[in-house]
Design a binder for these strands. Sequence first.
DNA 1: TGCGTGATATTCT
DNA 2: GAATATCACGCAG
Length: 213
Amino acid sequence: MTSDSSHVSAPRFVAFDADSETVAKRLLGQRLVRSHDGQRRSGLIVEVEAYLGATDKAAHTYGGRRTPRNESMYLPSGHLYVYFTYGMHHCMNVVCGQADEGVAVLLRAIEPIEGLESMRSARPKAKRDTQLCSGPARLTQALGIDLSHDGLDLRTSDTLFIEQVRKRTIADTKITRTPRIGVGYAQEWAQTPLRFCLTNNPHLSRRIKRITH
DNA sequence: TGCGTGATATTCT
DNA sequence: GAATATCACGCAG
């Protein structure tokens, strides 16, 4: 195996059919690929958040809420839920669990691997490559993902999909769990550690707080 | 390094 | 009318 193996097609990641915590951990270290205009932009998934559905006060589907915006979160697992927020940002989620359950994983950060030039031109404000995809809205901007991708099937799409570059789930010892970002309103759910990061990866959306003794 | 703040569409009160 | 699964900028220390 040489370092120039990025053109070799890897198998698709297909194991979306599980609860969102399990899928969140499975997705860490897999490769998110955006193929557009004959170019490939891709990166390793380094940070995700699990959203648990109707019982989760931080989830868009809390209490079974169903609106035109979140409709695709009720699609079968493997589909994409893209939403627009703060009047200017897109965020992308992978639907998991069962159809109509409203369960998903938010992709928060990737480590860029291919198509760095395209990402840089898509994100002129990023001063360093660690700022290209280190945040949910940053990574959608870097990859050119918007509402036109809402409801897309990652298992069959040729333009956006996830490649399985490792068969085993990353060991728990290499994963740091923290509370989710920006969900302080969600009461007891605000404290629940459902954000999963590859420990000390430089492409995270935020540094992991040091544990104080 | 770490606040405070503006931009601004969708949803809920 | 208010809040939000955010980002980028300015200013303080």
